[in-house]
């Protein structure tokens, strides 16, 4: 048997589109992420309108009775209200989607791999709650910059302007006619929105966003530029 191969790295659902846009990939843990793009300055786009693909990076979810209590016991801070996210000490984000459902995004810095720890800690025995495969089921984009909310107004009917949609607010809504989760998570002073949706629609959404972003000069940005705002 010739089966003794290592698990392959995780690539983005849209790595071809990223390559075409000039992406350079780097290994981050078990993933290959678009770190930066060939050509001009991404930092400027980041504060104007930038779109980062974070799809290969760790995220997870738990759902069912007891999920919230268990996560709290694992040291995850979770708010009372649904559709609100809480920043964790190491930079991760825990978004409560419903009274019994939480979405966890690993921090974008180089902190602890919280999602991996949670996935490993969960055991099926006698559980009344279950993991949700967010890393494979959903793409993960980050839309940043002052034009982000205006750009979203072209694809989404929820008012995401800064004074109407507070930092760490969550909207589970329709974006470009597909189901999506929007989480506002500013990078310092730069407005930023996580966008998660059906992974099979990742290419479709990428093109929708690129089209909507064109009038603002929006462009792809890499993880390195994003990290420059976190440090």
């Amino acid at each position: 048997m010739d089966g003794q191969v290592a698990r392959p790295p995780r690539r983005s659902f849209i790595y071809r589109e990223l390559e075409a846009a000039g992406a350079r990939f780097v290994a981050v843990g078990d993933a290959e992420v678009a770190a930066h793009y060939a050509g001009d300055d991404e930092t400027q786009a980041l504060s104007s309108l930038g779109i980062a693909d974070l799809s290969p990076l760790p995220r997870t979810g738990f759902k069912g009775d007891g999920a919230v209590d268990w996560l709290a016991a694992q040291g995850i801070a979770i708010g009372e209200a649904s559709n609100h996210a809480v920043r964790q000490a190491d930079g991760a984000l825990a978004a409560k989607l419903a009274p019994g459902e939480v979405l966890v995004l690993d921090g974008l810095g180089e902190g602890e791999a919280i999602c991996a720890r949670l996935d490993a800690a969960w055991t099926p025995v006698a559980s009344a709650f279950w993991p949700v495969p967010r890393r494979d089921g959903a793409f993960w984009f980050l839309v940043t910059g002052e034009h982000a909310a205006t750009m979203f107004a072209k694809v989404c009917g929820v008012d995401l302007r800064p004074d109407k949609f507070s930092n760490h607010a969550v909207a589970q809504t329709s974006v470009a006619r597909t189901n999506a989760i929007v989480v506002r998570d500013d990078l310092g002073a730069v407005p930023a929105f996580h966008l998660l949706g059906d992974s099979a629609s990742a290419r479709y959404m990428w093109h929708c966003l690129a089209d909507a972003a064109r009038e603002f000069g929006g462009r792809p940005v890499g993880l390195e530029a994003v990290r420059s705002l976190i440090r």
């Binding site: 649904s82 559709n83 419903a98 009917g157 929820v158 909207a171 589970q172 809504t173 329709s174």
Partner: peptide, 11 residues
């Protein structure tokens, strides 16, 4: 009741 006011097209 979970997500607040939304366009009817979401329902």
């Amino acid at each position: 009741p979970l997500n607040g006011p939304r366009n009817i097209s979401e329902f």
